[in-house]
Design a protein around this nucleic acid. Structure first.
Lengths: 221, 221
DNA sequence: AATATATTTTAGATTTGTCTAATATATATT
DNA sequence: AATATATATTAGACAAATCTAAAATATATT
């Protein structure tokens, strides 16, 4: 059984590969995990020896099929625990990520299947991220980032791109709730900020940075 | 924050102090944790430096107030998680202990209080062990071991003394369910085994070893 | 009380994951 | 293409928790 450290590296490589292309560099990993690149190199050698990654010195890494399946399994565990913490324990959505980081390493036969059943097989976690099923398959969603919408477009918030607590608290304060709808009123060409009208009719101003971190399901005409 | 290893040692010292007097020897600890006594000595020095135990070479150890409160907090977490696994996830009672051994080390402000509330503040876990409240107080129960009962005595099973999976499976197979009542029919002086009549009227034979591991609330005349 | 046995501690080594500083390789710039 | 800069790796050390084998202390037995 893989150590927590190994699991964290694999999850990190998977996530970085999602956003930054299939091959991941040491520096990206060390930045994300807040370690030195020397530590990363050491660990990459270990992960390669465990057949979890393909690794050539100075050439970056890719997950093997085995590594990928471990990563997806971890994502499943993480997101199911997040759902439990949010739905059942009523823990604030900006706090559940940190706790799930610990819970995802708990390992016992049948545990995750029972948790999944208890939660009634949720397809998305409290941040709108898809929860892979037992076979590792995700429910796809056709989503775009808010900054790609134009004036007049209508949409629904279906997810957030980052889990940073500060961002989640900000969203809540702005009344930008998961699954709520809105319309884009105006897009400022100067700084690419936007004015949007929330479901309750209030108009608010959104920075580019915020818009780039919100996943939207665009309403068809 | 204490490492998982430190937490496991503290919990072990606490449990051994319960059953074998206030001062605990190295050999008891190494036996329970399946390590060498050399490792135990090393760790005892560390625990003492953390003010969790009183330790004098060759003289055994006792928990400090701080150590005791850590142990009780761990017991609380362990037993609440066991209750969750059993009541909500429907995991077999002989399996929940092992999983709770991992879950008890998860640490986050408010988590355990929310879990407690979600479970409606249970006072006993699936094995009948009392769950300390947030202040570390246990609900007491006046219980005796089954082997102290005499022919004719009636009682209710309120707990088990050991969590060994094999024992729990055996009890289930014998129809000895937590909270079920019975009457002692006969006590064999030869090997101290007993015949008891279960609630459903069936008569079964119980060895001394089994009787010594069952906590009973004796019915008053 | 002296000796034998059992228990506990020390000394020194090992594994995992980490670090700093120095070196090697790759990428960017002229 | 040569040089400068950024990135990655190696070498050597460290902390936590563990081990084996040897030495020290405590307990039991005669």
């Amino acid at each position: 059984m893989a150590s927590q450290t190994v699991e964290n590296y694999i999850k990190t490589v998977y996530q970085l590969a999602q956003s930054a292309g299939p091959t991941v560099s040491s520096s990206l990993i060390s930045e994300k995990l807040k370690t030195t690149s020397a530590s990363v190199t050491d660990m990459l050698r270990k992960l390669a020896s465990l057949s979890l990654i393909h690794y050539e010195k100075y050439r970056g890494v890719q997950l093997t099929a085995e590594g990928k399946s471990m990563a997806v399994e971890l994502l499943r565990k993480h997101r199911l625990w997040e759902t439990f913490l949010y739905e059942k324990l009523k823990i604030r959505w900006d706090l559940v990520h940190e706790i799930a980081e610990q819970l995802e390493h708990v390992s016992a036969p049948g545990l995750i299947e029972q948790l999944d059943e208890f939660l009634a097989n949720p397809k998305f976690d409290p941040h709108g991220d898809p929860i892979p099923d037992a076979r590792g398959r995700f429910t796809l969603r056709n989503q775009v980032l808010l900054n790609t919408l134009e004036a007049g477009d209508k949409g629904t918030i279906v997810g957030v791109k980052t889990q940073e607590s500060e961002f989640l608290i900000y969203l809540h304060a702005m009344g930008l709730i998961l699954h709520s709808s809105f319309q884009v009123r105006e897009k400022m060409s100067y700084d690419e900020s936007m004015k949007i009208i929330r479901g309750d009719g209030d108009e608010i101003q959104i920075s580019l940075k915020t818009a780039q971190n919100l996943f939207i399901r665009k309403h068809s005409e």
